[in-house]
């Protein structure tokens, strides 16, 4: 299993891997928002956490469609599934998700505070946004894995994954953003939405891989 993790991280960061593109996409999406809403720093400071979250959601989805597709195209997926007796397939999916998160999503979380500065966010808001992203983005990856597994056998599955997964990821977005706001705006609490976010991640860490493993089993032909 550790070998699979290492292999997927290596593939992600090596030339041709999607990790770099995901980060650039994140930067670009965040950078484009001010052009749409105007350079008013007060406004940007207010919507900053939301922008970071939406951009992160989109960039996580961008690379997810390749999660199983690449393995399917070169035949590795069959071999990974055959090994299911030794390594439970759901666990295999879980490890692949973790590797994807490490290579493609963790850099976004690291870049997020920097982008918070561009949005003129307060230090506390930046910290809260980064923390919620750290805790919440794995949930998107796990849900996305289920979507990617369902769409793996379909032509043009890539766009479909986004369409399938976006609605499912809405709760994560809601609690991620409200926790970030809770840290700065006074009446709103930080801890309850943050804990719900943690719970969502743990929940999807179980549900996502299980669903994905089942879908992969049915998709092979």
């Amino acid at each position: 299993m550790w070998a699979l993790y290492i292999r997927d991280v290596q593939l992600g960061v090596r030339a041709g891997g999607g990790a770099l593109v995901g980060i650039i996409f994140f930067l670009t999406v965040v950078a484009v928002v001010p052009f749409g809403v105007g350079p008013d720093l007060n406004l940007l400071a207010r919507i900053g956490p939301a922008i970071l979250w939406v951009a992160a959601l989109l960039s996580v989805l961008l690379g997810l469609d390749r999660l199983f597709q690449a393995d399917r195209e070169d035949g590795s997926l069959d071999l990974l599934l055959i090994a299911g007796q030794r390594h439970m397939s759901a666990l295999m999916v879980f490890v692949k998700c973790l590797a994807h998160w490490t290579a493609s999503v963790a850099p976004l979380v690291i870049a997020a505070p920097l982008l918070g500065l561009f949005m003129n966010m307060e230090p506390v808001a930046i910290g809260a946004a980064a923390l919620t992203l750290l805790v919440g983005t794995p949930a998107i990856t796990f849900i996305g894995a289920a979507g990617a597994a369902v769409a793996v056998a379909l032509p043009r599955g890539g766009q479909l994954v986004s369409v399938l997964v976006l609605p499912l990821a809405i709760p994560v977005l809601i609690f991620g953003v409200s926790a970030s706001y809770g840290a700065v705006t006074d009446p709103a609490p930080f801890l309850p939405p943050f804990l719900i976010l943690c719970a969502l991640t743990l929940f999807f860490a179980v549900i996502g891989p299980l669903a994905a493993a089942q879908a992969l089993k049915w998709s092979s032909d």
Binding site: V21, L27, T28, P39, N120
Partner: peptide, 23 residues
């Protein structure tokens, strides 16, 4: 730390273009 002033923003866009080319 940052204002979306014309010159700064242009340089930032230039940075994004560099990143795109590297990718």
């Amino acid at each position: 730390w940052w204002v979306w002033d014309g010159r700064l923003t242009s340089v930032f866009v230039l940075f994004l273009m560099y990143l795109g080319l590297i990718a």
